[in-house]
Structures are given as C-alpha cells and as structure tokens.
C-alpha cells in the first residue's frame, strides 16, 4: 500500500510539558484512520502537527519522500495538499457559502473563478449544501456550517482530509448529518485522518484505529481488534468508560 504521510519520532512540547512523545505513525492512500483517546491525550495536537498548525518540536514528517520539517521546505505548498475540518468550523465570516469554497481555489491553486465555482458546486452538492450558495456563515446551523467546511476542504482536492473532532461542537441532533456525509466520503476512497469521540462511527468507517494515551500511541489496529479485542490495559479502561457513556 502506498504511504501518503509517514511520521517518524515526532514530539511536541509546550514549554516543559511534553504533549507528544516519540510518535511513529503513517497514513496510507485510500485509508480511513480514526484517532481516539481521552481529552488531553494529545490526539488533536498530533493532527495539528500533521498540517503544521503546531510546529513539532522534533521528528520527521515524510510526504512524497521529503521531510517537510526541513527548513527549506515550502510549508504552504504542503498544506494545500491536505484538507482540514475544524471542530469550530472556522468558515470565513466575510464570504458566503460559495465564496468559502472558491477563495482558496482561486488564490492558492490559481484556478479561474469559473472553474473554481464549478468545483465548489460539485462538492457542495456532495454535502447537500449546493442550494445555500448565497447564505452567509452566520445564517447557517452548526451542522450546515460543518458540511460547508467539508465542501471547502474538498474543493481544494486534497490528498488527505484531516478532521479535528468535527462533531464535538454540534448539537446532538446535528451530529448525524455530518457523520453521514463523512461516511459517504469514506466510501469514495478518500484518504481520511479523523480525531473523534464518536466510537460507533469510528468502529464503522475506520480501516485502522489509533488509541492515544498520555502523548503516545498506546494501541493501533483494525476496528475489530481495538474495540472487540483490545490488548492494552489502558485501551480496555478507556473503552469501558466511553462505551458505557453511550
């Protein structure tokens, strides 16, 4: 299987607090990987390190055979190959729905407005928001905003799509509409790396599940392995706690 991103010995500290320790981890083409773990385990930090919103303190991130943490590497060129969906949606407040999906394509990918709008509409249709092109972010519900955010990321046609707890800021009745879109995307063979608290969802869509605990990857394997036959003591404890809550 072709590796898209290969992370080696990655570490991250905030001051003297070591959030990530010696992380080895890779994402293969077409794979859906879910990162689970309790709050503060470092899973969001890991995701943010992958697209360099946080600067790793040490280690390597290999993409297309090159270490993108080299000083000379063009960060912006790398980032445009990754899509990111945030917990808080972060739609551009000064653009309407269409503008959100178009501005990156035009300014970063240098596509013409005509082409950008065509691509944007295609992906807005995928998430079921194509009829809301004129709406401003403040006029949308949380679930609608998140679906637009997914369309915005898809419009850049990235190699990998990163999700940072995409449903954590949503009202319970809106979680379903976002997860449904994500499930459909997973089935199209898109490479996805998802930090989530939705265990049922992780079980269902992942090819691989990564369990993080205290800044390290404590266990990694197929969903069946992690959810039904966990080997680690901490994995078992975590699953007992979270699955009971559901």
């Amino acid at each position: 299987m072709e590796t898209v991103i290969d992370i080696q010995r990655l570490s991250k500290s905030f001051g003297n607090h070591e959030v990530l320790k010696d992380i080895h981890f890779s994402v293969n083409k077409g794979e859906v990987v879910c990162i689970i773990g309790s709050s503060g385990s470092g899973k969001s930090t890991l995701l943010r390190c992958v697209n360099l919103l946080e600067k790793p303190s040490g280690g390597k991130i290999i993409y297309n055979g090159e270490n993108i943490l080299d000083d000379k590497h063009d960060i912006h060129a790398y980032r445009r190959r990754l899509g990111m969906v945030f917990q808080q949606f972060n739609l551009f407040n000064n653009h309407n729905v269409l503008g959100n999906c178009v501005v990156g394509q035009m300014k970063v990918l240098k596509r013409s407005r005509e082409e950008a709008e065509k691509v944007a509409l295609k992906y807005l249709k995928v998430v079921g928001m194509d009829r809301f092109v004129n709406a401003k972010p403040r006029q949308l519900s949380g679930g609608q905003k998140q679906r637009v955010a997914i369309a915005r990321a898809l419009s850049m046609e990235p190699d990998v799509l990163l999700f940072d707890e995409p449903t954590s800021a949503l009202d319970p009745e809106m979680v379903g509409e976002v997860l449904k879109v994500m499930k459909e995307l997973a089935e199209t063979g898109l490479t996805m790396l998802i930090v989530t608290h939705e265990m049922e969802f992780a079980k269902e869509v992942s090819d691989r599940v990564v369990f993080m605990d205290k800044g390290v990857i404590a266990e990694e394997g197929s969903p069946d392995q992690i959810f039904n036959h966990p080997t680690g003591e901490r994995t078992r404890e975590f699953l007992k706690r979270t699955l009971r809550e559901i």
Partner: peptide, 17 residues
C-alpha cells in the same frame, strides 16, 4: 478569531493572502 487564520493557513494561504 484565531480559527479564521488557522482555516486560511490550513487551505495553504501564506500570511499576505
């Protein structure tokens, strides 16, 4: 909001963009 910068950076925009 810091999220506005992050979303723009994540899309590949540089500081000026």
């Amino acid at each position: 909001d810091a999220g506005q910068y992050e979303a723009a950076q994540a899309i590949g925009m540089n500081h000026v963009q």
